[in-house]
Simulated scan of single mutants.
Amino acid sequence: MNLSVSRFSTVVILIVVAALSRIVPHPFNFTPIGAIALFGAAQFNRKLFAFMIPAAAMLLSDAVIGNPSLPTYLSFALIAVFGLVYLKKVTVSRLFVSSLVASISFFLITNFFVWFGGSMYPQTAQGLIACYTAGLAFYQQTLFGNLFLNTIMGDLFYTSLLFGSFYQINKIAFKPTVA
Results as ranks from 00 to 15, higher is better:
G145F: 03
Q126M: 12
F112I: 06
I33S: 08
I53N: 03
N111G: 07
N67E: 12
A18C: 06
T177E: 14
F144D: 15
R7W: 04
F174T: 02
F112W: 05
I65H: 01
L60M: 03
R94Q: 07
V17E: 01
F39L: 03
L38W: 02
G164T: 01
G154F: 05
G145C: 05
I33D: 14
T159I: 03
G145E: 02
S61Y: 03
Y86V: 12
I53M: 06
L136Q: 07
L74W: 04
I172M: 09
A63I: 00
F116N: 04
L70R: 02
S160C: 09
V85P: 08
G164A: 02
V11H: 04
N170V: 05
V85T: 02
K171L: 11
A130W: 06
P68N: 03
S99E: 07
V64Y: 09
Y121G: 09
R22S: 09
F30H: 01
V17I: 12
L38H: 01
F30Y: 12
I79A: 02
M1A: 14
L143P: 13
F138T: 14
P176D: 11
L143Y: 11
I104V: 15
I23M: 05
Y86C: 10
N150R: 03
I172S: 08
G83V: 01
L60R: 02
I23V: 15
K88C: 04
G66W: 00
S9G: 15
A56K: 10
P68H: 00
G40F: 04
S160A: 13
S9V: 13
R46V: 11
V17M: 02
L59A: 10
F76I: 07
I15Y: 04
I23F: 00
G40C: 07
A173R: 14
K171P: 02
S61E: 01
L161G: 09
G145V: 01
N29V: 08
F82Y: 13
F96R: 02
Y132N: 11
F138N: 14
T142S: 14
L78R: 03
Y158A: 03
T159M: 00
A134D: 15
G145K: 02
A56P: 03
K89V: 10
T151C: 08
Q168F: 15
Y86A: 15
L3C: 08
A130R: 10
L149N: 03
F144C: 10
G117S: 04
L156C: 10
Q123Y: 03
V16F: 07
Q168L: 14
M1E: 10
T142M: 12
S4H: 15
R94K: 12
F82H: 14
N150I: 10
V17C: 05
A50S: 15
V81G: 05
N29T: 11
T110Y: 00
P68M: 00
I104Y: 05
T177Y: 11
V81A: 14
G127K: 03
Q140E: 11
L128T: 00
V114G: 01
R7T: 06
L147F: 08
P27D: 03
L108T: 01
R94S: 11
T110A: 00
L149Q: 04
N45D: 15
V17A: 13
Q168P: 08
F148S: 08
V92Q: 08
N170R: 11
S21C: 06
L143E: 14
I152A: 12
F112T: 06
F107A: 10
Y158P: 07
M52R: 06
T133A: 15
L60I: 05
N111K: 13
G127L: 02
I104R: 00
L156Y: 05
K89L: 04
T151L: 08
